[in-house]
């Protein structure tokens, strides 16, 4: 879980880096195309991470983890 997190933040940083590189005048066309493909691939991965997270609301009681329903606790 922790690692995926770092990956996501790194991926977002990488997305920014690729954008800056692509927008610079110096990059030749071949490298630009490669960077473009790399960036699109990465953005796809980021979206996958977002989609694959799982909704859970749990409560830790005496070392056990249970589903938590806030309405039942009233």
């Amino acid at each position: 879980m922790k690692e995926e997190n770092i990956n996501f933040e790194k991926a977002m940083q990488e997305l920014e880096k690729i954008a800056e590189e692509l927008e610079s005048e110096d990059l030749d066309l071949d490298t630009s195309v490669k960077k473009f493909e790399q960036g699109m691939e990465l953005s796809k991965k980021c979206n996958e991470i977002l989609n694959n997270a799982e909704k859970k609301i749990t409560i830790l009681i005496n070392g056990n983890e249970e589903k938590f329903d806030v309405n039942n606790e009233e």
Binding site: A19, L22, E23, S32, K35, F36, M40, S43
Partner: peptide, 19 residues
């Protein structure tokens, strides 16, 4: 977050087109 990611995709497309 999704929007941010999509803006990157747009930036890439625009940059490549410009190039």
């Amino acid at each position: 977050v999704r929007y941010t990611i999509s803006t990157y995709e747009n930036r890439y497309k625009i940059a490549l087109k410009r190039k």
